[in-house]
Design a binder for these strands. Structure first.
Lengths: 209, 209
DNA sequence: TCGTGAGTTTACCAAATGGTAAAAAAGCAA
DNA sequence: TTGCTTTTTTACCATTTGGTAAACTCACGA
C-alpha cells in the first residue's frame, strides 16, 4: 500500500481510470439525455464510449451508478449561474445577467438540460435527495435576496419563487423542447438571438420598478 | 355482414370494445406519462387497466399503437386553447386568457402535459409528422394574428413566436417539473394561485403597449 | 525478463419484455 | 337450446438487457 493516498479508504485513480471513466460519462450523457434512464441501455453507452459492456462495468458498479454520478457532477455546473447572483450587484443587471447565462447554458449544454428534465419529469426518483440538499437551500437563499431587492423598491414587486421558476422554464425550454422549437422556428442561429432579446425584454419589463 | 356500418372498411365497435379501449388508454396515459415510452411496459399498463396483457393486445396491435393513439387523441385537446385565440377579441384579454387557460390545463391535465413533454424531450420520434401537420399551421396562423395586433399598436412590439413559446414554457413547467416545484414550494394550493397571478402580471407588463 | 496487478475480452446467465397461438369462455341471435 | 362470433385466458416464445465469471492481455517496476 502506497502511503501516497491522502484518503485511507480510496486509492488514487490511475491515468487510464480517469480517462476511461470520463469516456463512459461522456457517452452516457449522450445516451441518457436522449432516451432517459430506462430507455438507455448499457450496450448503447458501451458502443458510444467505444468500450465493451463488461469493461464499462469494471469502472462503474452498474447502470444506476453511472446515472447518479452524472447527475451529481452536473448539479454543481447547473446551479452555478444561480449561485452567482450577487447581493452587492445592481438588482436589474444581476437578474438579467442570470437570464442571459441561463439561456447560454441551454444553448451550450442541451444534453445536460435534457438529462435533468428527464429525471424531473419521471418524478426525480434518483435526485430527490439532491434537490432537497443542494437546490432547495440555494433557491431559498436567492429568493430571500430577490425579496429584499423587491422590498427595497430596487425592482418591481414580484414573487421571487415564481420569478426564478419562470426564468428556468423559459430558458430551459429551448434545450428541452428543441425538437418542437426546430419545427416551429427552423432558423437556428437567428432563433437563439431572438430568444435572448425576447427574454431580456420580458424580464426587464417585469422587473422595472 | 350487417349493412349498418357506414364505412365499408370498419365494423362498428361494440359497447365492450369502446369500454375496454378506453380503459387501456386511461391506464396507458398514467404509465406512459410517468415513465416515458420505453420506460413503460405492457405489463404495467395491463395491471393498471385491470386486463391481461394478451387481452390488451386484442384491442391494440402493440405498444406503439397505444402510444400513438394517445398522442393523436390528446393533440386536439392540447391545441384547443391556442385555437381559441379570437382575432375579433381584445388582444390583451385574449392573450391573458390564453395564459390562464394554458395554466389551467397544466393543473387539470398534468399527465397529458408530461406525456407530450416526454415525447418531445426524446426528439418527438413518434410525433414529428403531427407537429408539422397539426401544430405548425396553427402556430403560424396565431403568430400572424399576434403580429398584426403588435403592428396595429394594440399590444407592445413583441416577437410572436417567442411570446407563445414563453407562454408554453412557463405554464407547462408547473406540470412537467412538478417533482421539482413540489420540493421548492410545498404548499400546492397556494402555489397555483401565486403562479397564476405571477404569469398574469408578467405577460401583462410584457404586452402593455 | 519475469512477476504482479490493472485492464479487457469472451462466453455466459437470469430476468424482463413485447408479442403469439390456441384453447376456453362468454355473449348473443335464431 | 344451438350455433356462431366476440372476448379472455393459459401457456408459450424470441429477443433484449443488466450483470457476472473467469480467462486473457498488457503495462511496468524490480
Amino acid at each position: 500500500m502506497t502511503d501516497e493516498a491522502t484518503d485511507s479508504t480510496k486509492r488514487k485513480p490511475s491515468r487510464i481510470q480517469q480517462k476511461n471513466r470520463k469516456r463512459v460519462l461522456e457517452a452516457a450523457l449522450d445516451v441518457f439525455s436522449q432516451h432517459g434512464y430506462r430507455g438507455a441501455t448499457l450496450d448503447q453507452i458501451a458502443e458510444a464510449a467505444g468500450l465493451s459492456k463488461p469493461n464499462i462495468l469494471y469502472y462503474f458498479s452498474g447502470k444506476e451508478e453511472i446515472h447518479v454520478t452524472l447527475l451529481n457532477r452536473l448539479m454543481e455546473t447547473w446551479l452555478d449561474p444561480l449561485a452567482h447572483l450577487d447581493p452587492r450587484g445592481d438588482p436589474m443587471a444581476e437578474l438579467l445577467g442570470y437570464v442571459r447565462r441561463k439561456l447560454e447554458m441551454s444553448r451550450l449544454y442541451p444534453r445536460e438540460s435534457r438529462l435533468f428534465a428527464n429525471e424531473i419529469l419521471q418524478g426525480a426518483p434518483r435526485m430527490a435527495p439532491h434537490l432537497e440538499s443542494g437546490l432547495k437551500p440555494l433557491f431559498d437563499e436567492k429568493c430571500a435576496l430577490i425579496q429584499s431587492w423587491s422590498d427595497a423598491g430596487r425592482i418591481a414587486r414580484v414573487n421571487p419563487r415564481h420569478l426564478i421558476m419562470s426564468i428556468w422554464a423559459t430558458s430551459q425550454h429551448y434545450a428541452d423542447f428543441e425538437a418542437q422549437v426546430r419545427v416551429l422556428e427552423p432558423e437556428t442561429d437567428a432563433s437563439w438571438k431572438a430568444a435572448g432579446a425576447h427574454l431580456e425584454t420580458m424580464f426587464r419589463k417585469l422587473l422595472q420598478p
